[in-house]
Design a protein around this nucleic acid. Structure first.
Lengths: 110, 110
DNA sequence: CAATTAACACTCTAATAAGAGTGCTTATAA
DNA sequence: TTATAAGCACTCTTATTAGAGTGTTAATTG
């Protein structure tokens, strides 16, 4: 069982995560919370909060969500890709979307 | 070194992540991508895509970001908590925000 | 200015996530 | 209608993350 080495993320991905981290730091300070306080309220380690604010991409979605919850901004994550605001794929009604996507020749579709 | 058992996430957190997973699945199908195709383009395993769409909270932010990048929706993550749209903490100018948050008695502030 | 302590930067290791593999079910499209 | 393969549900193992610990730096505030 050979495990594939992961590719590094494209720059825009790295930058987006870094931006998110900075904004979490800002939001926290606006609310006058220390990193330790935010961590404690979120039920995670202060190191984890630090790594997230620093822009390390390793954090889990759950931890991010817990932090946003404490910051009172969970809804932003919940509606991140909400139907109706997804402008790229508006060709089909959601009810008519296929459950499985099949392509003519599967190999080429990858 | 005793590791603390993590608390389960509050229900709103769990629900937000599940919603996000469903929306990723919708967005993918709107774009006529199979799970395998999305995984491949995102540089992650199909199992990981599956778990994310299923709403498992374990996924990493980086993987989420990579997927959003492929879906053409990375900006949504980048501006998730963007300054100016953060309505809760508008009392101070960002420039004047303290780098460190100090409380009268730290213990009580936790 | 000086004391306090928030934030940073590490290390170490337990806990968890994620890749690969296998088999099954059933939606899709020819 | 039927062949195909998308998606699901597992398991197993490795890779990665995150919690704890320790020491340092420097921003805040009295």
């Amino acid at each position: 069982m050979v495990f594939m080495k992961r590719y590094p993320s494209p720059d825009p991905v790295t930058r987006a995560i870094a931006k998110l981290g900075r904004d979490i730091s800002l939001a926290r300070r606006r609310r006058r919370l220390s990193q330790a306080s935010l961590a404690d309220r979120s039920g995670i380690a202060v190191n984890t909060v630090r790594r997230l604010e620093k822009g390390e991409p390793s954090g889990s979605i759950e931890h991010l969500a817990r932090i946003l919850y404490v910051l009172g901004e969970l809804e932003r994550l919940e509606t991140l890709l909400d139907t109706g605001t997804d402008e790229l794929g508006l060709l089909m009604m959601d009810e008519s979307l296929p459950q499985r996507i099949r392509t003519r020749q599967s190999k080429a579709a990858l």
